[in-house]
Design a protein around this nucleic acid. Structure first.
Length: 208
DNA sequence: TACTATGATTCAAT
DNA sequence: ATTGAATCATAGTA
């Protein structure tokens, strides 16, 4: 009798210990996961930022990638979909806030996307570099070349840096469905209302 | 060491 | 559910 009781006791305590341990572990992992996410922030790889930026700037008029696109971007950048979402969330906000500064980046990346991806001999990934043409890289399996037009326009608009003052991004692209309309809306209050912005702007290219 | 850039989280609005 | 905005926390830099 006592034997049985003893055995059962032992078993119980064993189970107890196990339970304790596992719950403890679970809690710890949960906690660390929650905190670490923020604590151990690591910058994305060049590849990732490159891919993200290219998409962002070639879709400046509507930088809202669909789920599929997000997955694609995540794959190319070697990050997760939620990271892509985060990135785009941050990017939109910060682009709006800073548009002035970031526009340089915009030009850079639009240049890259249309000219050629400057191959950096660090990655060594077989994703989409070393393919000099914009389409060949097949950035995204989107509808089709519709977006390429955008890129080209972007490029065109950045060609001549005349007064030194960048105009607004190619918001005038009306190819996109006015889903969000102009997501930037009142981005640069002053810039938008800048009275003398017509000074020799280069928007006369349409004539040719 | 202060500052800036940047990824992640939270919360309200839609 | 998704997005914008604010905020946090870390990485990188001057």
């Amino acid at each position: 009798m006592e034997h049985m009781v003893g055995i059962i006791h032992g078993k119980f305590s064993a189970i107890q210990r196990q339970l304790k341990q596992s719950t403890c572990e679970a809690v710890m992992t949960l906690r660390s996961r929650l905190l670490d996410a923020r604590r151990k922030r690591r910058n994305f790889s060049k590849q990732a930022t490159q891919v993200l930026n290219e998409y962002f700037y070639s879709h400046l008029s509507n930088p809202y990638p669909s789920e599929e696109t997000k997955e694609e971007l995540a794959r190319k950048g070697g990050i997760t979909v939620s990271q892509v979402s985060n990135w785009f969330g941050n990017k939109r906000i910060r682009y709006k806030k800073n548009s002035g500064k970031l526009q340089e980046e915009a030009t850079m990346y639009s240049e890259k996307t249309s000219v050629a991806t400057k191959v950096r001999g660090s990655g060594g990934q077989t994703s989409c570099q070393s393919t000099p043409s914009p389409g060949s890289c097949g950035p995204f399996p989107l509808t089709s070349g519709g977006d390429m037009v955008l890129t080209l326009r972007t490029l065109a608009f950045l060609q001549p840096p005349p007064g030194g003052a960048f105009l607004q991004p190619p918001g005038g692209v009306c190819l996109q469905p006015p889903a969000h309309s102009s997501w930037q809306r009142a981005t640069t209050p002053q810039a938008a209302s800048s009275p003398a912005e017509d000074s020799g702007s280069f928007n006369s290219d349409v004539s040719n």
